[in-house]
Nucleic acid binder design. Structure first.
Lengths: 203, 203
DNA sequence: TCATTTAGTTAGTGATCACTTACTTACTAG
DNA sequence: CTAGTAAGTAAGTGATCACTAACTAAATGA
């Protein structure tokens, strides 16, 4: 049953993330993680010098996953509004698959104990916002959405849409489908953005 | 320095809420609360049989404050869209004044330990959503916003706006003014909602 | 084959948590 | 004035936390 350090580290990180989903980030104790893996609690400290460094590894994996998901979503999509849609859809899908992500944003580990982690997550959210804003600006130059809108404002509205959907999903004990409801709202918002000038042209 | 039970209970609840703002909900220990008040830790258990019941009292005060703020905001406002604006503005102002509220939504106490609290908050958010939806429906019958929009969908967009603003504010270490940026976004969204048919009529 | 490396264990540490018990002191009604 | 009540204290409890020291056994390379 003995694994290489590399494999074991990955297993520990994955387990922490899974347990953060299931029981909440602040409930993930070293003892609980070790028990789930099937090693003693002390074994974790062979691989990570402290729990904070373990969380840092988790955060790094999450931010990597986010970056990868965005890149994949944008592959071979050139139309600006389709790119916006793909980005939001990817974010919704990722949160649905890894519900710990929004919980991590407000966990004790991130918000209080570890300024570095908070900074890393904030930077990722900022990157998401900037990607949205860039494509929205492109859509604007194509005359697809009104010219007097600030792309960054619209990008904020769209990221808020994702965050709101995640909050309602979390509070509702995950009964509804976050992806479906989120995508439905995205369509409403995108129609609102497009229709004004589009309908003028059509009419 | 001895206070009546009523006064002391109120003082404890207020202190918990203040400390939840300052150090995070999960960091609020009975010892820390007692120390800030200036009594022994055991004294808290004279007034609340358990920490869970203490949190329940805090939640009740918060939901009461929410309800009051909404009622006050709607007083003497009859125009549907102005009511929507007043509601969202009131919510932004309240969160800015009591930043623990969004943190509570994701705290361990609420999301894991205490199903009752989670239910209470979910119900309040639902009430907010329904109030928005009702006024949006009224605006729809007045022809102020497009008829083919589901009022509940638009209400979700608006509550998400508030939640997104709160998240960015919390993660950004509260450097920006949440009320200002939130209200600016609200204006953008409201213009998006109105302009479509308004501009058609004008044009 | 055997020495070295390394993943893992056993059995603790002190700190901190919510909560309890037994006692004490301040207020108040009769 | 005094007896009862209610607020508060001192000093614990056991549980749980992250983390450590000393030891063991499995893999590996010469």
């Amino acid at each position: 049953m003995r694994k290489s350090a590399e494999l074991r580290k990955a297993e520990i990180v994955a387990t922490v993330l899974e347990m953060a989903d299931r029981i909440g980030p602040d409930r993930v104790t070293t003892a609980a993680v070790a028990q789930q893996i099937g090693v003693t609690q002390a074994a974790l400290f062979r691989h990570f010098p402290s729990k904070a460094e373990l969380w840092a590894a988790v955060a790094e994996q999450v931010t990597d996953t986010l970056a990868t998901a965005w890149r994949t979503a944008l592959e071979d999509v050139s139309d600006p509004l389709e790119r916006v849609r793909a980005l939001v859809a990817a974010q919704l899908a990722l949160i649905a698959r890894t519900p710990a992500i929004p919980m991590l944003l407000f966990s004790r580990e991130l918000t209080i104990e570890n300024d570095l982690l908070r900074g890393a997550f904030q930077e990722r959210l900022g990157a998401f916002h900037e990607m949205l804003a860039a494509d929205l600006a492109a859509a604007q130059t194509q005359g697809r959405i009104p010219a007097d809108l600030a792309p960054r404002d619209v990008a904020y509205l769209l990221s808020s849409l994702v965050q709101g959907a995640a909050i309602r999903w979390a509070l509702g004990a995950r009964k509804t489908s976050m992806e479906e409801t989120g995508l439905a709202l995205l369509d409403v918002q995108l129609r609102l953005l497009q229709r004004q000038e589009g309908s003028r042209r059509d009419a």
